[in-house]
Design a protein around this nucleic acid. Structure first.
Lengths: 185, 185
DNA sequence: GTCTATAATAGGATAGAC
DNA sequence: GTCTATCCTATTATAGAC
């Protein structure tokens, strides 16, 4: 048997890039094959369930990324301000300064919405929970922390849409800069 | 010649519903034909340029809706608070309480992004300008008004993503409720 | 202005060789 | 694990009758 051209994780990374840029329905197997450098059959070897399997793997990868880079630090003893500073750095890199779309944001339309409805709600819920936990660690009372956390998620999602719509990273930049005061101030 | 089954505006309305729900790339002519009740050939009669023409017509229709329902009232002598209250009502209806996606938001991904890049930036710009004009009418200084207006657009877009992601109208509802204080307070 | 028919292409998915 | 070849469906778009 030939050796794998790419480790599975690398394949999933490239699939992620495609689903972020085109959305679920519009990401064609041809594009996915091209961007991974794998033939259709190789993709089906990794993902027997076809495109839906690929999207599921990508979805889970982003979920794991969030746990590791975003909300993993929440469990540490580090103070909330420093943890948030590291989250902001991670968000900036992950979203390419606001010019890369959010997979979850893309999946609220089209057939992805029905296919991934439950994990999608859970993923957004974890974002809110993660931010709320941070605010509560800072001493902000539960209901207010939750309100701020929801605001943070909305502002990030909205900033990604606006930055891409205007083709200008400034809105996303500003939301990141204001996040410490908005969430923990 | 047979009479038109639907006035052109009604056709565009139904196309809008499809592009909102599926996005540009994923909205197939089959779906568009089905949702309008028109055969493919009739669609090509209305829109000789095919899907791109249909999307253009839909885009312009939303633009006109914004002028009429959202920023048209900005020119009136009515006080800013009342004008905003009417905008909020219009937004609530247009976005079905947060459960209907935004066409502009959908068009920041896939091939729609490259096709509509310029009108898309202009549309988001008009949203910001419209809200900023309202805040300035209320006496808020230019730069601060502009900052609040950008925030308003981001929050609305983000709330639509979040409400659809959570399958819960509450985030959009809250953003609408808080809009008067956030923009004019 | 709408219809049926059709062309040409791209879509998702599978089979079997190596 | 990758490849080529293939199947079937759906896709965009056009032609021509009424």
């Amino acid at each position: 048997m030939p050796a794998p051209l790419l480790p599975r994780d690398a394949v999933v990374d490239r699939l992620l890039a495609a689903f972020r840029e085109h959305g679920y329905d519009a990401a064609s197997l041809g594009q996915l094959s091209k961007i991974t450098g794998l033939g259709r059959s190789s993709l089906y070897h990794y993902f027997p369930g076809g495109k839906e399997d690929m999207a599921r793997a990508v979805f889970e990868r982003v979920d794991r990324w969030c746990d590791a880079e975003l909300f993993g630090p929440a469990g540490t003893a580090e103070d909330p301000d420093r943890r948030l500073a590291r989250m902001i750095e991670a968000l900036d890199a992950f979203f390419a300064g606001g010019m890369a779309a959010c997979l979850f944001g893309n999946f609220v339309v089209g057939s992805a919405r029905s296919i991934f409805q439950e994990p999608l709600g859970a993923a957004f819920g974890r974002w809110i929970d993660g931010f709320a936990a941070l605010a509560m660690d800072k001493g902000i009372p539960g209901p207010e922390a939750r309100r701020r956390a929801e605001d943070a998620v909305m502002r990030l999602q909205g900033a990604l849409v606006l930055s891409r719509g205007l083709d200008d990273p400034a809105p996303f930049r500003r939301v990141l800069d204001e996040l410490p005061a908005q969430l923990l101030g």
